[in-house]
Design a protein around this nucleic acid. Structure first.
Lengths: 195, 195, 195, 195
DNA sequence: TATGAATGAGCCTTCATTCAT
DNA sequence: CATGAATGAAGGCTCATTCAT
């Protein structure tokens, strides 16, 4: 007997539309500069309608952020499936991360550009919490690497994460594919010459 | 004949106060969430008074950003004085960069957290332009490094800049001094073991 | 042949629930500050459902007010049953009036606190009309009193009604019972010393 | 040397205009149904301008209420000047009270129609506090009356206040002058025949 | 009958900006 | 130079109401 997928009620569909619209707007203009009217317009709703699905702008934002980290994590886990070599695993994870930054996926951009520091204490806490699982995965991946004993794994990891995050600043969808870039970055830190 | 320091007219003093206040506010809450009233309040002016010194919010922001990059650049150049060894030079530059991120200097934080992408085309152009000189310095420093031929200097530089920028996310003014951190990061990419 | 009580159809029950909820909300916060959502919530309905029973907020309000005056009138008439002495009759009427103001009966509170003056002409007319029967009863009761010829019965009545209405401002359900209070008030105006 | 009255700065004038407009709107439609836009329009300001003088709708309302009680109190005290006979004094006070209810004075109407019970705890406290001074004056006036020992002064006072407050419901600016009405009311309770 | 979902007007408030003084 | 006062557009959010199911 097969398990039925949850019936996509009208509400669920609308929620998704709004979420997508919010992700796009926030990714492009930032949370503060994004208006509920814009989000509504992008989702083809009227302004008031959003509030049937989300009780406030901040709640909507938190939902977008949650979805964003979920998408990155899912992509990373997908890329890791069946891989066992530690170096290959971390390269695959980085590839996933960069794939998420490819144009068109606004969620990931939100997760990387909205700094918790700027939000209210309460929101900040939620944001940090949501991001923690992702960071945890990278921590494990780095811990599994056969690095020379003298190397500080914490800084190694921070360097890699910074390198990846910075890609959102300079990466344009032209030429170099993300897998190559990811490999190159890991190799730079791995003290190997990239292939 | 001695060189007179620029006479600190009342206007210049006020300008500086406003600039400082704006830097602080924008660093802490972001450009969009910062109001002219807040800036005025922080600088102990009334909102209208700002407009004697800056014609608009965006102009004020641009001025802050200019000052921000200037401060980083000055600090980097200061640290480079008298240094000739390429590895020492890049480490010193990184140290300067991280020093600027230390708590208390709001300017640097502005330069790193306000993404041009989010601004109008015109503002974005100005922002990118203002940051270019700083990037140029790092480009030269990297170009001067005796890296193995197989290494892609562009990605090497991007990795380093990302690593440094990411520090604003995790760096807290506790324990480890910035010089040590900077050295560690360069060594990680330099294929050396940090001391 | 027995008289069947009106069959409590589901609709009638719902109607009553909504009416009660509306009375409570309006009594506590006033018509303008009461939302259909609150009423629905209090009645354990969804907002849209109210509109099956009442075509608009104002219609619902009018229905509440009608019920409110009906309840006061019924109570007054009940208290008057079998009484023939004019002074006793008016005291009993006042007692009924004050009883209705006792905590728990939100209807009466609505009738006393929602001033027609504030409503649209049309609504105001309805409200005044609904209240007229009650006022008429008091007019008759006062007319039946053996007052000295020099006394202006209109002002006497207005004074009594004002006195009673004002009770909603200061009356707390503590100590003195309403019958005693009612008697006292009538005696004050009757030029007698209350017992 | 005469004392200069405080120079009516522009701000003070504006404040008064807004206050007057608010009093009128709130008197006619009630606090909840009155919008800041209406108040602004009535005062010939733009909506945003109000907030230069009052930080919120509720603060504005509290200011109106304060002014309202002040006006009634001032009028009462004025009418009491030079009067020493207790009966004459209370009649004069009632006259003042009714004068304030005359059409055109919207402040007094606000004070009588906006029940603290319906406001937030904080606002309610302010409202009650503001009204207390007025009530205190009437308490003293009643205490000074040579009433028969058997009469409960508290209920006597409450009856008079209710009688006066109720006037706002039925009083129309036609015919009978307020002094006559006030006298009549006091006489009704005073066990005298009105002149 | 009742509900889930959407509507669009309207509310309180804030904002960057202006300008006479 | 700086301010007090005003502006008017826009922002987040709520509301009475509707209607297909």
């Amino acid at each position: 007997m097969t398990k039925h997928p949850p019936k996509p009620s009208k509400a669920r569909v609308s929620r998704q539309q709004i979420l997508d619209a919010a992700a796009k707007c926030i990714a492009l203009k930032g949370y503060d500069a994004t208006t509920m009217r814009e989000i509504a317009g992008t989702a083809k709703f009227l302004p008031g309608s959003i509030y049937y699905h989300f009780s406030s702008k901040s709640e909507l934002f938190l939902a977008v952020n949650k979805e964003a980290t979920k998408q990155i994590i899912d992509r990373v886990l997908l890329n890791l499936q069946g891989k066992t070599d530690p170096w290959e695993r971390i390269k695959k994870a980085c590839t996933a991360y960069l794939e998420c930054l490819s144009e068109g996926n606004y969620y990931a951009l939100v997760a990387l550009t909205e700094f918790p520091r700027r939000r209210s204490t309460e929101m900040a806490k939620s944001l940090v919490q949501q991001r923690e699982e992702l960071e945890g995965i990278f921590r494990e991946l780095v811990d599994d690497l056969p690095l020379e004993r003298s190397i500080n794994r914490k800084y190694w990891r921070l360097s890699l994460l910074g390198t990846l995050a910075w890609a959102m600043i300079w990466y344009k969808n032209e030429g170099d594919d993300v897998e190559h870039i990811a490999t190159t970055f890991v190799d730079l830190l791995a003290h190997k010459t990239s292939s």
